[in-house]
Design a protein around this nucleic acid. Structure first.
Length: 524
RNA sequence: GGCCCGUUCGUCUAGGGGUUAGGACAUCAGGUUUUCAUCCUGGAAACAGGGGUUCGAUUCCCCUACGGGCUACCA
């Protein structure tokens, strides 16, 4: 399908513009990802801009967290706070001096005005309107006539107040009676009547712009062509459209694409910070500790997710390629991604499927790569030096990865490859063990210890089967106890391969130890 | 409350005026396997409701219900 929004008239420039108020939410990551994919697909430029106009909500470390998260996921920027670029600075707090002139220009054009109302006065106004059962109490074309602003005050009075340094804000003057319409790439035409809009503050009394002004000014200056952002911005999009028009920038107005939100897996509502640890899945890309409260939130990276898996599963939350292909590399996503296949409705996050995605990537990873990861854990467990070995560990990984969802599962599944079982799964022993098995294993040990058995998976299997037949025992009844003796567990990777990898000496040792241990526990 | 956006299996979704409404995760059954898992085969499972428009609506329109977002000198 042709995409007229990728028109050749302007090179594609998109931005991800988070606010450094805390760790980057997974929904924000998805927004960043879609922006990135869109930019790459159209050979465009991807910009990271930090929207830190609210000094009260600034959280130290949050910007660093955002940068690190996206880097981990392979979402790279062409311009922005890290790389710099032709439109630096990319931090709005550092762009502070640039905004005032635009707000004042708006006043000059009659599209904005000074307002001197105090917090208390605003509060009182809202109370009054609520008491009068006004449906939508707001600072608008009606109420502004009874407030303290440059529309109600005389020119002299306004000037006097400004000169005396009285705090003021600049508000947009929403036109009284018209329809604002714009075309959203994902939602089609969106129409809002100005009667439902209020005179939003554009410029705050602390000298900083609000999001609304800063975002429009920066998008204009940075020549942004497409604004791909969360649905929470949809209600204020008409305000932004008005701003472009009032500034005379309508030709430069970017196209909008409002993404639906990520919803929580259970019940209702959007995915929030709390849900993750409550429901047992991460809501953040990386671990985060709040610098003030000390509250910790866990991240995908530390939970053992691969960045490729996170990218893949996030891409599919609200987008699909229209084929049955489920697994996509970043490159494939770049080739395939289009905004017209992004769904309009919110998506509930599915932790099960997230795990499934990780597993798909885990299984496909080369054993050597997994070994490099697992070796870190192995080392930390203090295992014998000769077993802290990449080749051996790669083979271990090859055997155990099909049982795992995460590399962090590896130790629980395959720790016995490094340390003999400290305890047995007693349910198996109690259920399956009998005196015949005792003599069987004694004989088995003997045969396995014989050099005529070359101790490959195949030969081990042959020995067990023939010995079982000889002893009149079904092979099935010895396998479980044998597994427990060797690994301590009732379930695990293919046993014969496991034993081959463990090696003759170790297996023989474990049989000896097992016979002694089971003997001891049965006599007590 | 007001405004805006949305609604296909439990979940993510495909589809689209006439289809056996497709796939994936999860789930169930059978098979393979020395165990668990994988894997294979199969099953159950959805167009929110009501009105239109139409020869025909799940698909287009309207209403209702439900869900979500916004409603700050926060983004």
């Amino acid at each position: 399908m042709a995409e007229n929004y990728s028109s050749a008239t302007r090179p594609v420039r998109v931005r991800f513009a988070p606010s450094p108020t805390g760790p980057l939410h997974i929904g924000g990551v998805r927004t960043a990802l879609y922006n990135y994919l869109f930019a790459r697909r159209h050979n465009g430029t991807f910009i990271l801009r930090i929207e830190d106009t609210d000094r009260n909500r600034f959280v130290p470390g949050a910007e660093q967290y955002i940068v690190e998260s996206l880097k981990w996921l392979g979402i790279h920027f062409d311009e922005g706070v890290v790389n710099g670029g032709p439109h630096a600075p990319y931090r709005q707090s550092e762009r502070k001096p640039m905004y005032r002139q635009y707000a004042e220009e708006l006043i000059k054009r009659g599209n904005a005005y000074y307002a001197f109302d105090t917090t208390e006065e605003l509060e009182a106004m809202r109370k009054r309107l609520e008491a009068a059962k006004v449906a939508a109490p707001q600072y608008n074309y009606i109420t502004r006539s009874s407030m303290k602003n440059s529309l109600t005050l005389s020119e002299d009075e306004t000037k006097k107040r400004l000169d005396s340094g009285e705090p003021y804000v600049i508000r947009i003057k929403i036109p009284r009676n018209e329809e604002v319409r714009f075309h959203d790439i994902i939602r089609g035409w969106v129409v809002v009547h100005t009667q439902s809009l209020d005179d939003k503050v554009l410029f705050k009394s602390d000298g900083m712009p609000t999001y609304h002004l800063a975002n429009v000014v920066d998008d204009y200056l940075m020549q942004i062509t497409h604004v791909i952002r969360g649905e929470e911005w949809l209600p204020s999009a008409p305000l932004h459209v008005l701003l472009y028009r009032f500034m005379g920038w309508q030709d430069m107005m970017p196209q909008f694409a409002h993404l639906s939100l990520l919803l929580r897996p259970d019940g209702n509502g959007k995915l929030s910070k709390r849900d993750g640890d409550r429901l047992g899945f991460p809501v953040f890309p990386l671990d985060w500790k709040d610098p003030v409260t000390g509250e910790k939130s866990s991240g995908y990276r530390e939970q053992g997710y691969f960045p490729e898996a996170v990218v893949n599963l996030l891409a599919f939350l609200g987008w699909n390629p229209g084929t049955t292909q489920e697994l996509f590399t970043m490159e494939e996503l770049v080739e395939t991604f289009t905004l017209d296949r992004v769904s309009k409705h919110g998506a509930k996050f599915d932790p099960e499927k997230a795990r499934w995605y990780n597993r798909q990537y885990l299984i496909r990873k080369p054993n050597e790569e997994l070994a490099d990861i697992f070796l870190q854990v192995v080392k930390a467990k203090g295992v014998p030096e000769n077993l802290v070995n990449r080749d051996y560990t790669a083979k271990v990984c090859g055997l155990i990865k099909e049982k795992a969802y995460f590399t962090s599962d590896f130790w629980d599944i395959g720790g016995f490859f490094y340390i003999p079982p400290a305890a047995y799964d007693n349910s198996v022993i109690q259920k399956k063990w009998n005196d015949h098995l005792h003599s069987f294993f004694a004989k088995l040990k003997h045969e396995l210890d014989n050099p005529s058995c070359n101790f490959t998976a195949q030969s081990i299997e042959a020995v067990i089967k023939s010995l079982a037949a000889e002893s009149g025992i079904s092979p099935g009844s010895v396998m479980q106890p044998f597994r427990v003796i060797v690994t301590g567990m009732a379930a695990g990777p293919a046993l014969f391969e496991t034993m081959e990898l463990l090696g003759r000496d170790e297996v023989v040792k474990r049989i000896d130890a097992g016979l002694i241990r089971i003997e001891a526990s049965s006599t007590t």
